[in-house]
Simulated assay, not measured.
Amino acid sequence: MSVPAPLITPFGSVSRLLIWMAKRAAPLTGIAISIAALLWSDFRREFALPIGFASSSMLTALPSLAAIVCVAVGCIVTGIAVPAMVLTHPLRKDAASLAQLCLPTGSVSPEPEVRRTTLIIRRYWVGMGVASVVAWAMAIGWMSIRPDTPLVSGFLLLLGCILLQTASARPTLQRALRSQDPASAGFYWMLLFSLLLQYWVAFWAMYAVVKSIAASTFMAILACWVVLVLVMAVVAMFQMMVSQRVTHGWYPNLLKHLVCLALVLLGFVGMIPPLGARLAAFALLSTASAERPCTILLFKSDIHDTVPKAIVDMHHPSQSKELRVVFPSDGKLYIKESVDGPTYFIDLKALVGTASCPRLGSS
């Protein structure tokens, strides 16, 4: 008599993942350090910092970058997977979920009704992923054309799109299941929450792709949105595939495959210097990139001759202008007033401290 295989639960899969990572600590560490080195190279190139690749600052920065790589892996895995939870949520109590109603990926059913239901549900979910990018494009386009429009108007537009997408689920499910009341109110609330998370995923995908644009030409922007549409379509199909594997029996290697996928994505990001540099900036810069708060340096009163005049605030000589890039390395500060501006050097001994923006003494 054969003994049935033990049931693998989600918590059991986490334990298996930790054991799997412990046995492969050396190669996984090597991959993380390699990605960190690639991000460091992107950072030096994009921020134009004249620091040797084998400098002591680079060697001390690699562990921090490796930690950022690990955190980014977790964020990517969570961000992509969480919106799909509605696909595993039952339409009603003791009823099937959307993932269970669909055919598993790669399988074919002889029943045309099952194929029809699968096609409608898949089209809806992928369409909602693509619609999130379209909604962001509408909001950003409107705010660009009418810059005097309050920011809250853009958020209201996005919220209206999410509510419309949620409302469209009812007629879609009625057509797919041939039922007048296919789902409970709890399911629609779960769908609304999942679509909010999907918009969050779309925002960060949009942020990453936009940062890779070298020139703000019409063709570059058009290509950006085409790539975004394709990315969100792939993300939606991936979510559907994983949810089906989970609902048809827990996917024991899910977490392992997601970790590997995230490492591949991070390696791909590292091969695009603008994206890799922005990711590295979160760990390396005191102020980070142009979208983050700036820093003001406070100088000692007796060594102004060692401070470049170009960065001194003329209204407050004891402090610097608003600096976007402040990178400490080997007893010096590499500073830039803007990301694209010239790089200046200051000895750390010339400082008494730092302050955050806005300028000191401003109203």
Results as ranks from 00 to 15, higher is better:
Ile8Met: 00
Phe11Met: 14
Arg16Gly: 00
Arg16Lys: 08
Arg16Cys: 00
Leu17Trp: 00
Lys23Asp: 01
Ala25Trp: 13
Ala25Ser: 13
Ala25Ile: 09
Ala26Leu: 15
Leu28Ser: 04
Ile31Gln: 15
Ile33Leu: 14
Ala36Tyr: 04
Ala36Val: 02
Trp40Gly: 12
Ser41Tyr: 03
Ser41Lys: 14
Phe43Ile: 09
Glu46Leu: 09
Gly52Ile: 05
Gly52Trp: 07
Ser55Glu: 05
Thr60Tyr: 09
Pro63Phe: 00
Pro63Gly: 01
Ser64Arg: 14
Ala66Val: 05
Ala67Ile: 12
Ala72Ile: 03
Ile76Ser: 06
Ile76Phe: 06
Ala81Tyr: 04
Pro83Met: 01
Ala84Phe: 03
Met85Val: 12
His89Ala: 11
His89Trp: 13
Leu91Gln: 02
Ala96Pro: 11
Leu101Val: 02
Leu103Lys: 11
Pro104His: 01
Thr105Tyr: 11
Val114Asn: 08
Tyr124Glu: 08
Tyr124Phe: 11
Val130Lys: 02
Ala131Asn: 08
Ala137Tyr: 08
Ala139Asn: 04
Met143Ala: 07
Asp148Pro: 03
Pro150Tyr: 02
Gly154Trp: 04
Leu157Glu: 01
Leu158Asp: 02
Cys161Leu: 12
Cys161Asn: 12
Ile162Ser: 02
Leu163Ser: 08
Leu164Asn: 07
Thr166Lys: 15
Arg170Glu: 12
Thr172Ile: 10
Leu173Met: 05
Arg175Ile: 12
Ala183Tyr: 03
Ser194Ile: 01
Ala202Thr: 04
Ala205Trp: 09
Tyr207Gly: 10
Lys211Glu: 14
Ser212His: 14
Ser212Ala: 15
Ala214Pro: 04
Ala214His: 08
Ser216Met: 09
Trp225Tyr: 06
Val226Gln: 12
Val234Ile: 01
Met237Lys: 02
Met240Thr: 10
Met241Arg: 11
Val246Asn: 06
Thr247Glu: 15
Tyr251Ser: 00
Leu263Gly: 05
Leu279Asp: 00
Phe282Leu: 09
Glu291His: 11
Asp302Phe: 07
Thr306Pro: 06
Val307His: 00
Asp313Leu: 08
Val326Asn: 01
Val326Glu: 04
Phe327Val: 07
Pro328Asp: 06
Lys332Tyr: 12
Tyr334Ile: 05
Ile335Gly: 03
Ile335Cys: 10
Gly341Ile: 02
Thr343Ser: 14
Phe345Cys: 09
Ala350Val: 01
Gly353Trp: 07
Thr354Pro: 02
Cys357Phe: 02
Ser362Leu: 12
Ser363Leu: 10
